[in-house]
Design a protein around this nucleic acid. Structure first.
Lengths: 332, 332
DNA sequence: CTGAAAGCGCTTACAG
DNA sequence: CTGAAAGCGCTTACAG
C-alpha cells in the first residue's frame, strides 16, 4: 500500500500469490503465451478484489510517455470549442489518453497561464484555428492542426470551409441577390481567408455580382458597427454574409437599429451553427460545422501519428442550414 | 539525457559541476542555508543553458502528488463553464497545477468517457453545479463544490443566486408587474431551487403578487414551448422570469410567435449573463454571475484544502444588469 | 555546505 | 511458465 492508502501492484501480487512482474504482465494484457490462464485469472480477480488501479505517474516515468494530449484553442467563450473538446476527449478516453485544454492566446489571461509547453508532460498537441507558427517552440512534440492551413508541415484535419461558403453564395445568389456585403472576421487565419476567397470567387463569377467587404472582430458589438456602416451606404447590399454566427448576431442588431427587417429588407447569413444561430429571431441561415467530429478525427490522427503513422490531411464537409434569415432581395 | 532527448537533473549537475541532489535542492527553492549562493547561481545558469525542465512524472511518483485537479462541469456547450474553467486554470497555473476538464454527465457521451476517477492521477476535484453525491465514489480525494448546495459536507464556493433573484424580483415588481411567469430550469439542483424559492418569496410578500410556474429543459426549443403555454393563458403573466439566459431566448421566440412585443407586451428576464444575453434583441435584463471569479475562488479554496487548511464556504454576489427586455406592464 | 543513496511504482529484458 | 532485478528521474533524509 502506498502512503495514501492506494494498493500497488505488489499488493495485488501478494493477494494473488504471484510475483509483481507477473501482475504487471497480466494487467498490461501481454501475458498470452507467457503466463498460464489460471494465473492470469487469479491476478485479475485479486486486482478487482482490492480495487487496484495502476499509478499513472510510475507508468509515465517508466515509459517516457504521459498519455496526455494538449488541446490548444483560441478561446472557450465560444461553445464551438467546447464541442470540439468533447469530440477529442471521447476518442482520447477510449485509448486511455486524457486531454488538457489550453485556451491560447486568451487575451485576458495569456500571461498568467504560463507556457503550456513548459510542463512538457504531454505526448502530443492538437491545435485548432491557428497557425502552426503561433505555437512557437514546442520541441519535437507531435502536432496535428485542426481547422488550419493544410499547406503547413503538420498533418491537418479541416472543415471544407471554402465549399461551405460556396454553398452560402449559391444560396443567396439563387435567391436573386447580386450585391453582397461580406463581414469578414478580423482575424488573419486560414479558415477566414478561405471563407473570403470562396465568397469573392463565387460572386465574381455571377453576372452582375459584386462584394462590398467589411471587417469586424468576432464580437457582437464590433460586428454591429461594421454592419451598420454597410447598411448606411446609399448602395446598400441586399444580403450580409458573415464569417461567423456571432458576427451575424451583430448584423441583426444593426439592421433593427436602422429599422430594417431581416430578411424582408436585408438577408443575413452566418457560419458555424452554434447555439446562438437557432436562438436568434429569425433563426439564422448558416453553415453547420461538426465541431465534435473535427475533434474526434483530429485525435484519431494524432494517435496515428504517435504510433509512428503518417495520417493524411483530411477535410470534413459542412452543411448549409437554411433557416429564416434569408429571402429574395426586396423589389425596388 | 533521456531517450527522447530531454535533459535531466543529472545533465544539469554535470554542466554545473555539482551533484544531482544539489541541483534538485536548488531548483526546488529549498537551498537557502544549505547550498552556497554561488553554487545555487551556477545551477540556475546551467539549467537555463541546457533548457532543463523537471520531469513531472518522476516528481509525481516521488511525491505521491500529481499537481492535477479535475474540474467536473455539467456541459461545455454553455460558455459559462468555459469562463469558469478559465478562472480555475489561471489560479492553477500560478501554483504549478494543471486542470483537466470533465464534462459530466454529458448526455451524449457519458458512457464513452469512462470514469474520470478511474485514472486517479489527480490531487483534488472541483465540481460545479451538481450534487456531491453525483460524483459517486471518488475515494478520499479532496473536493470543493462550486455553485452547489452549501449544506453539504464539502467546502463550497457559490453565487448568491437567491440575492440575484431577489434583485430581479424587486426590479420587475418595481416596474409594476404583479403576475409573474416563472420558467424554471427542469434540473433538480440547488442553484435552481434557490432561484425559485427566492422568486416565490419575494413575489408572495408583495400585495397582489403571484407566480405562475412552468418548467423547461435548459434548451431554447423546450423553453419556447413552456413560454408559449404561459403566454396563451387567458390570465397571461406580464413578465417571464427565466432561470437562465437560454431559457429567456426561448421566451423571446414564443412571444414573437404569438405576435407579442418584448418588452411592450411582455417583459423577459434571464440569469447568468452569457454572451447570448447581449446578442438578443432587445438585449436581455439578467443577473451577471462572475463565472471566472467563481472558478478562481474555487481553485484557491481547493489549494487551501490540499495544504491541510479548512477553507470556509463562501458566496459571491451577482449583479443585476438592466437592459431592454423589461418595461412596465402594458396598461389594460 | 555538499554528495551518496534509498526509494516512489511501474515495465521489461533476462535468467531460470 | 514465473520471478529477481534494473532503471525511468526525481526528492529528501542522512552522513560527512
Amino acid at each position: 500500500m502506498t502512503r495514501n492508502g492506494r494498493p500497488t501492484s505488489r499488493d495485488v501480487a501478494h493477494e494473488a500469490g504471484v510475483s509483481q512482474s507477473t501482475v504487471s504482465l497480466v494487467l498490461a494484457g501481454k501475458w498470452t503465451g507467457r503466463v498460464s490462464p489460471a494465473t492470469a485469472q487469479a491476478v485479475h480477480e485479486a486486482a478487482a478484489r482490492i480495487g487496484y488501479r495502476p499509478n499513472e505517474a510510475a507508468r509515465s516515468l517508466r515509459l517516457g510517455r504521459t498519455r496526455t494530449v494538449l488541446l490548444v484553442v483560441p478561446t472557450l467563450s465560444n461553445p464551438f470549442f467546447g464541442a470540439l473538446y468533447t469530440g477529442t476527449a471521447r476518442v482520447a478516453a477510449a485509448h486511455g489518453f486524457r486531454i488538457v485544454v489550453y485556451p491560447w492566446p486568451e487575451p485576458a489571461h495569456s500571461a498568467a497561464f504560463g507556457s503550456p509547453f513548459a510542463h512538457e508532460a504531454i505526448d502530443g498537441i492538437l491545435a485548432s484555428s491557428m497557425a502552426l507558427e503561433m505555437l512557437g517552440g514546442f520541441g519535437g512534440t507531435p502536432v496535428v492542426m485542426l481547422d488550419s492551413d493544410p499547406a503547413g508541415v503538420a498533418p491537418t484535419v479541416d472543415f471544407d470551409v471554402a465549399d461551405g461558403m460556396r454553398r452560402i453564395a449559391d444560396h443567396v445568389l439563387g435567391l436573386g441577390h447580386r450585391h453582397v456585403g461580406h463581414i469578414a472576421a478580423a482575424v488573419d487565419e486560414w479558415t477566414f481567408r478561405s471563407r473570403g476567397e470562396a465568397l469573392h470567387a463565387a460572386v465574381a463569377s455571377t453576372p452582375g455580382g459584386r462584394v462590398t467587404p467589411a471587417r469586424a472582430a468576432i464580437d457582437v458589438a464590433a460586428a454591429r458597427d461594421a454592419a451598420a456602416d454597410l447598411l448606411r451606404r446609399p448602395d446598400r447590399p441586399t444580403v450580409l454574409v458573415c464569417d461567423d454566427d456571432q458576427i451575424a448576431a451583430g448584423a441583426y442588431k444593426a439592421a433593427r437599429a436602422l429599422g430594417l427587417e431581416v430578411p424582408g429588407d436585408v438577408s443575413v447569413t452566418g457560419f458555424d451553427d452554434v447555439l446562438l444561430a437557432a436562438a436568434l429571431e429569425p433563426e439564422l441561415t448558416t453553415v453547420r460545422l461538426p465541431a465534435a467530429a473535427l475533434g474526434a478525427e483530429g485525435m484519431t490522427a494524432l494517435l496515428d501519428l504517435l504510433d509512428g503513422g503518417t495520417p493524411p490531411s483530411r477535410s470534413l464537409p459542412g452543411d448549409l442550414v437554411v433557416r429564416g434569415s434569408t429571402a429574395p432581395p426586396p423589389v425596388r
